Amino acid sequence: MKDIKRKGARSTKDIPDFILKQLNNGEIETANLVEWLAVNQIVLLENILKQLNRFRYFEPVLIAVNNLKKQTVNTINEVIGTELLKQSILNDDTDLITNISTHESDLVRCWATYSIGRNEKLKIEDMLEQIQFFAADTHFGVREISWLAVRPAIMRNLNQSLEILLKWTFNDNENIRRFATESIRPRGVWCEHIAALKQKPELGLSILNSLKADPSKYVQDSVGNWLNDASKTRPDFVIDLCKRWKVESSVKETTYIIKKALRTIEK
C-alpha cells in the first residue's frame, strides 16, 4: 500500500537510511522532490530487474547509461526507459512493460512512460491514448515525466495533437486536463521549446479557452504558465486574450490565471 501520508525529508542528508533503502529497492514511492532526486536509479534498476527475474537486461541498459554525455535524473530516466523498451522488443517480452507500468515505485513507472514516448511504431493518437494512464497518475513525478516522454512526438504532430488534447480538457480528472496545457507549453521546463507556439500561440487558443475558468488550481497554474511563456515572444496575444477573458469570464479562477499570465509583462 502506498504511504500517502509521508511528507519526506527537506534535504538529502535528512533522508533516513531505511527510507532510502526502500526507495532504491522500489518498495515505496518518493514523497517529494528531494527523495526523487536522491534515488540511485542504477541501484533501483538492478534491484527491479532481479525482482522481475530479468537481470540479463541490466548490462545493456547500464552501457547505455554510461554512454550518456550528461547524466542527470531526467536523462538517466529516459535512457533506462528507452533501453527497457528495446529489450522488451528484442526478447518479445511484453510483460516487462506491463510490470513496470504498474510498479509501486514512481521512478519505475516513469521509465514506463518512455516505452510509449520512444516507441516509433506508435502513431500519435495511440501514443497519447496510452500515455493518458500516466498523465492521471497520483504521483507528481510520473505526471511530469509523462508529458516529457511524449513531447517530441507532440511537436512532430502538433496540429493533430492539439485536436486530441482539446478533448482532454473536458476530462473529469484534473491531472489529465492539466496535461493538455503542460505538454504543449511554448517554452516548457527541462525541454525543447515549441517554436510554432512561441510564434503563433493562437494555435493553442481552443485549449486555453476551454480551461480559462477551470476549478482546479493545478490546471489554473498550468494555463497561467502557458500564457506567461507565450508573453515572452507574443505579448500582444497574451494582453489581448487577458483583456477579453476579463470581460467574458469575470470569475476568480480566470482572474487568478490572468494574474499569472501577465506576471512577466507587468514586471
Results as ranks from 00 to 15, higher is better:
1 M>P: 12
7 K>R: 14
7 K>Q: 13
10 R>T: 13
12 T>Y: 11
14 D>C: 07
16 P>M: 10
17 D>A: 15
22 Q>C: 12
25 N>D: 12
25 N>S: 12
25 N>G: 01
26 G>K: 10
29 E>F: 06
33 L>S: 11
35 E>D: 03
36 W>P: 00
42 I>C: 05
44 L>R: 10
46 E>M: 04
48 I>A: 02
50 K>M: 09
50 K>Y: 07
50 K>R: 12
51 Q>E: 15
52 L>M: 10
52 L>G: 03
54 R>F: 11
55 F>S: 12
56 R>T: 14
57 Y>M: 06
60 P>T: 04
63 I>M: 07
67 N>P: 03
67 N>W: 03
69 K>F: 05
69 K>G: 15
70 K>P: 02
74 N>K: 11
75 T>D: 07
77 N>S: 14
78 E>W: 08
80 I>R: 07
80 I>W: 10
81 G>L: 08
84 L>W: 09
84 L>M: 09
86 K>Q: 13
86 K>A: 07
87 Q>P: 05
90 L>F: 14
90 L>P: 02
91 N>H: 15
94 T>Q: 14
95 D>E: 15
96 L>W: 09
97 I>T: 02
103 H>A: 15
103 H>C: 08
108 V>N: 05
109 R>A: 05
110 C>T: 09
116 I>G: 00
117 G>F: 06
117 G>D: 01
119 N>Y: 12
119 N>K: 09
121 K>I: 09
124 I>F: 10
124 I>W: 09
125 E>K: 13
126 D>T: 12
128 L>M: 13
129 E>P: 00
130 Q>W: 08
133 F>P: 00
139 H>Q: 13
140 F>P: 02
140 F>K: 04
146 S>K: 02
146 S>M: 03
146 S>N: 05
148 L>H: 10
152 P>Q: 01
153 A>G: 01
155 M>Q: 12
159 N>P: 01
159 N>F: 10
160 Q>H: 11
161 S>V: 08
162 L>H: 07
164 I>C: 04
164 I>E: 02
166 L>E: 07
168 W>E: 01
169 T>G: 03
171 N>H: 15
176 I>D: 00
176 I>G: 00
178 R>Y: 05
180 A>V: 10
182 E>M: 03
183 S>F: 05
185 R>W: 05
188 G>V: 03
188 G>E: 00
190 W>R: 12
191 C>G: 04
192 E>P: 00
193 H>V: 08
194 I>F: 03
200 K>T: 13
201 P>N: 08
206 S>V: 09
206 S>C: 07
210 S>G: 06
213 A>F: 11
214 D>K: 08
215 P>A: 12
216 S>G: 05
219 V>N: 06
222 S>C: 10
222 S>E: 05
224 G>Y: 01
226 W>F: 15
231 S>Y: 03
234 R>C: 12
239 I>G: 04
241 L>I: 09
243 K>F: 09
244 R>A: 14
244 R>D: 14
247 V>T: 15
248 E>M: 13
248 E>L: 15
250 S>K: 14
256 Y>F: 14
257 I>N: 07
258 I>N: 04
259 K>L: 06
261 A>Q: 01
263 R>L: 02
265 I>T: 04
266 E>Q: 12
266 E>G: 01
267 K>S: 11
